[in-house]
Computed example of a mutant assay.
Amino acid sequence: MAIQTKPTDADVTAFLDAVPDERRRAEGHAMRDLFERVTGEKAVMWGPSMVGFGSYHYQGKSSSGDWFVVGFSPRKAALTIYGVYDDYGPVEPLFADLGPHETGKGCLYLKRLDAVDGDVLEQLVRRAWEKRTA
């Protein structure tokens, strides 16, 4: 069984500009800038609501497919960041310095981008990118 979410040709800027909440919309644009700077990759829409950077092939116990290396989605409940948190291994010590956040199901959830340490967030994205692309 493969994940159904795939990269699309949808316009990332149009998606981010259409985020209803003004703060979450601004956070989405800020995250795009951070991810593009760290990864050197252009943002790509994956499915209707996730912005991904790079891709890799995975083979799990019950599924396989392609997925983005790191990414995010400016969701209503929280800014959701993918690829920086792995709930199957040791917890990255930098999370202690990040600021208010939650984790779960392989995601990092931020209620407010301005409440976390931007330098620490950038290091988390960089480490996750380097781990999968080295």
Rank of each mutant, 00 (worst) to 15 (best):
Y109D: 09
H57L: 08
E102Y: 06
E36P: 05
P48D: 04
L124K: 03
M45K: 08
D87P: 11
D97T: 07
F35H: 12
D119R: 14
S55T: 08
F53W: 03
D86C: 09
V19L: 08
A30Y: 06
P7K: 09
V51C: 02
A26N: 11
E92S: 12
G83M: 06
L124W: 00
W129N: 00
T5Q: 13
M45L: 12
K42A: 14
T103S: 10
V51F: 11
V70T: 08
D119F: 07
G40L: 04
Y85N: 10
D33P: 00
R23C: 04
V51G: 00
G47N: 04
G118A: 15
M45N: 11
P20S: 09
S64A: 14
T5C: 05
T5R: 15
R75A: 06
E122L: 02
K105P: 09
A14T: 12
G104V: 01
S64G: 13
K42L: 09
F72H: 06
K131W: 03
D86G: 05
R32T: 13
S62Q: 13
D9R: 12
S62R: 14
K131M: 07
Y85D: 05
R75I: 07
A14E: 14
E102G: 15
P48Y: 01
E41C: 10
D86H: 13
P20E: 10
E130G: 03
V70C: 04
R127G: 11
L79K: 11
P7V: 05
Y88H: 15
R75C: 07
S64E: 15
S49H: 07
H101K: 08
T8A: 09
W67Q: 03
L124F: 00
D17R: 13
G54D: 01
D66C: 04
I81V: 15
K105S: 14
Q4W: 11
G60P: 02
H29E: 00
R37M: 07
V44F: 03
E92T: 08
G47P: 02
G99T: 02
G99K: 05
A134E: 14
Q4I: 13
P7H: 06
L79T: 10
Y58W: 10
C107G: 09
G47C: 03
D87I: 00
R24V: 00
G104M: 01
Q4F: 11
A115N: 03
V38G: 00
G71P: 08
L16P: 07
A2C: 08
K131G: 05
T103I: 14
K6Q: 15
D97M: 10
R112Q: 14
V19F: 09
L16Q: 04
Q59D: 12
V125Q: 02
S73P: 06
S64V: 01
V19S: 08
G89D: 10
M45A: 09
P48N: 10
P90M: 05
R127H: 14
E22W: 04
E102L: 14
G83T: 07
D97E: 15
S63T: 12
S49V: 03
D21E: 15
K42F: 02
W67G: 00
F68W: 09
D119L: 12
V116D: 08
W67V: 00
Q123S: 14
E92R: 11
V116C: 05
Y88A: 15
S55C: 01
V69R: 07
G47M: 06
D86L: 08
G52R: 06
